[in-house]
């Protein structure tokens, strides 16, 4: 790929219809700008890999990926990342449980039932919800959701996984709704009319024709939302606290991978120490998970896209 990149730039810098020097200069400049995004990817991978390898010289990968105790800062230290992964997964799972049904139902309403007028009001509102900074959601979890939960579940802690899951669910909901709405709307009307002509009701048309036909886009939106929930930082940092543990109840404080990274960077960690390196090991793992989900989501879009013409 590097070789190819080089050729790409070279071709544009030198071999540009001979005469126009100014033009080939600009060509070259634009190609260099494009190069920045490629370099960014390589830098991300290189840095995460380098520092992670440094970490894995001190701590074996087996202990890191399969250990169940995460005590990086106190003696005796232990570097098992599973409690953080567990924290991330429980928040993500809870968020998906909330956002997927609500998001899909909203998408169905917007694309199949809502009038043009309602749609033109609701969709911008949902997009507004998507544009609210995540730190605001953290505030919302701490000052609204947790007190509300406390009235129902008095034993709940101030920092708890449940409010984190709920708030992340609310956060990714608009993403699922708007992306799935786009996917459902791209299903051609002829399919709907065909099904109606066969005597199907609107429920049957939606669940048996429209949603299956737009499934690739819908699935892609789910995966993107899950990936976003896994990488989400500020809302969970504020809502779930900083206690890495593998409890099954959602009522206790936990710690996610992202919240750990924030916790470490708030203290003044010296460069090069093992605590500094844990940042990169955890971030590298996080990067791998989200990358996998994003690639999977694109694969879904391309592999199962039905083309109607």
């Amino acid at each position: 790929m590097t070789m190819g990149t080089f050729r790409l730039v070279k071709k544009d810098c030198i071999n540009n219809r001979g005469t126009r020097w100014g033009e080939s200069l600009i060509h070259c400049g634009l190609a260099l700008c494009t190069l920045i995004s490629i370099v960014t990817t390589f830098v991300i991978i290189a840095i995460l890999a380098k520092e992670s390898f440094g970490f894995f010289e001190e701590v074996s990968p087996v202990e890191f990926y399969f250990g169940t105790r995460w005590v990086p800062l106190l003696e005796p230290s232990s570097y098992g990342v599973l409690p953080l992964v567990w924290g991330t997964l429980s928040v993500t799972f809870g968020a998906a449980l909330i956002a997927i049904p609500i998001g899909l139902a909203s998408a169905i309403y917007l694309s199949e039932y809502a009038s043009h007028r309602v749609r033109s009001i609701v969709k911008p509102l949902l997009e507004l919800l998507a544009g609210i900074p995540t730190v605001v959601y953290g505030y919302f979890a701490l000052t609204f959701i947790t007190p509300l939960l406390k009235t129902v579940l008095p034993e709940i802690q101030v920092f708890n996984a449940l409010s984190g899951a709920i708030v992340v669910g609310i956060m990714v909901l608009p993403m699922i709704a708007t992306l799935s709405d786009n996917a459902l709307r791209s299903v051609p009307d002829t399919l709907r009319q065909g099904a109606y002509a066969l005597g199907a009701t609107s429920y049957e048309v939606t669940t048996q024709v429209v949603v299956p036909a737009g499934l690739s886009g819908v699935m892609a939106s789910f995966l993107l939302a899950i990936s976003r929930a896994i990488g989400e930082t500020m809302a969970v940092t504020l809502a779930v606290g900083a206690t890495p543990n593998m409890s099954f109840t959602l009522l206790e404080s936990i710690q996610t991978m992202t919240a750990y990274i924030v916790q470490i960077s708030l203290g003044d960690t010296p460069a090069g120490g093992i605590a500094y390196q844990t940042l990169f090991a955890v971030a590298g793992f996080l990067f791998l998970i989200t990358l996998l989900l994003n690639v999977l989501s694109q694969w879904f879009l391309n592999r199962y896209r039905e083309v109607y013409d």
Partner: peptide
């Protein structure tokens, strides 16, 4: 499109290191 999906905190770590 993959870069767009990288969590913002990872960019933060890269910013810290670079």
């Amino acid at each position: 499109s993959n870069l767009a999906g990288v969590p913002s905190i990872v960019y933060g770590i890269i910013g810290l290191a670079v």
